[in-house]
Deep mutational scan, measured.
Amino acid sequence: KSPLTGYVRFMNERREQLRAKRPEVPFPEITRMLGNEWSKLPPEEKQRYLDEADRDKERYMKELEQY
């Protein structure tokens, strides 16, 4: 499975939280809201997602080498 970027990891995590709080909001609007939230997120909060993405990318590269 391909590695996910930090942005995609953030979107996946927050999308479920936002949909639970506001189920009436259409999917494209949720994506737009989360995109704005990501762009305003402080670098230190973004870093968690970026670090997870880096670890996932390393895992993926190792799997490719073994293939």
Rank of each mutant, 00 (worst) to 15 (best):
E65K: 08
D54H: 10
V8A: 14
K57M: 10
L4S: 13
P23A: 05
E13G: 01
D56M: 03
M11W: 07
S2N: 13
T5N: 08
N12R: 08
L50I: 03
R9S: 03
F27A: 15
P23C: 02
R59W: 03
R14K: 06
S2P: 05
E58M: 03
F27T: 15
T31I: 06
P28V: 13
I30Y: 03
Q17D: 03
P26D: 12
Y7S: 11
R32C: 01
T31R: 07
K21N: 12
M61R: 11
L41C: 01
M61S: 12
A20P: 02
Q47P: 01
L50C: 15
M33V: 15
A53I: 04
L4H: 09
R19W: 11
P28N: 14
E16G: 05
L41W: 00
M61L: 12
D51N: 09
L18K: 13
Q47E: 09
Q17C: 03
E44Q: 06
T31C: 12
K57L: 03
P26Q: 07
R55L: 07
E58F: 04
K21Q: 14
N12S: 09
G35S: 15
L64K: 15
E13M: 06
L4C: 08
M11L: 09
F27D: 15
L50Q: 15
E16K: 06
E58W: 03
Q47Y: 08
R9P: 04
V25L: 15
E13H: 02
N12C: 05
D54C: 09
P23S: 07
R55D: 15
M11I: 10
M61T: 10
T31P: 04
P42D: 07
E29H: 15
K62D: 12
E24R: 04
F27E: 15
Y7G: 03
R14F: 03
P23R: 02
D56P: 10
L18N: 01
R15P: 02
E13S: 02
Q17I: 11
F10M: 01
K46N: 00
D54L: 13
D56E: 13
E45A: 09
E24F: 09
R59C: 07
K1L: 03
D51E: 05
E13C: 04
F10I: 05
A53D: 05
P28Q: 14
R22N: 15
P42K: 02
V25Q: 09
F27R: 13
V8W: 07
D54S: 11
L50S: 15
D54E: 13
P42N: 04
P42W: 00
K46S: 00
R55C: 10
Q47T: 11
Y49D: 02
V8C: 07
E63G: 10
E44K: 10
E44H: 09
P42Q: 01
L18D: 06
P43K: 05
I30F: 05
K1M: 05
N12T: 10
P43R: 12
E52K: 00
E63R: 08
E13W: 00
Q66L: 11
R59G: 13
N12G: 04
M61E: 13
R22V: 08
P23N: 05
Q17F: 08
I30G: 06
V25P: 04
P43T: 11
E63K: 08
E65L: 06
V8R: 11
Q17S: 09
D56A: 04
L18G: 02
S2F: 04
E65I: 01
R32G: 03
Y60I: 09
F10W: 12
R9E: 02
L50Y: 14
D56K: 08
D54P: 13
T5K: 10
Q66S: 10
Q17L: 08
P26Y: 01
T5C: 07
D56Y: 00
P23G: 07
E24N: 13
P3C: 08
E65H: 13
P3K: 10
P28S: 14
R19K: 14
R59A: 12
E63V: 05
Y60T: 15
K21S: 14
E45S: 04
E63D: 11
Y7N: 02
L4M: 08
P43C: 08
P3Q: 02
R15A: 12
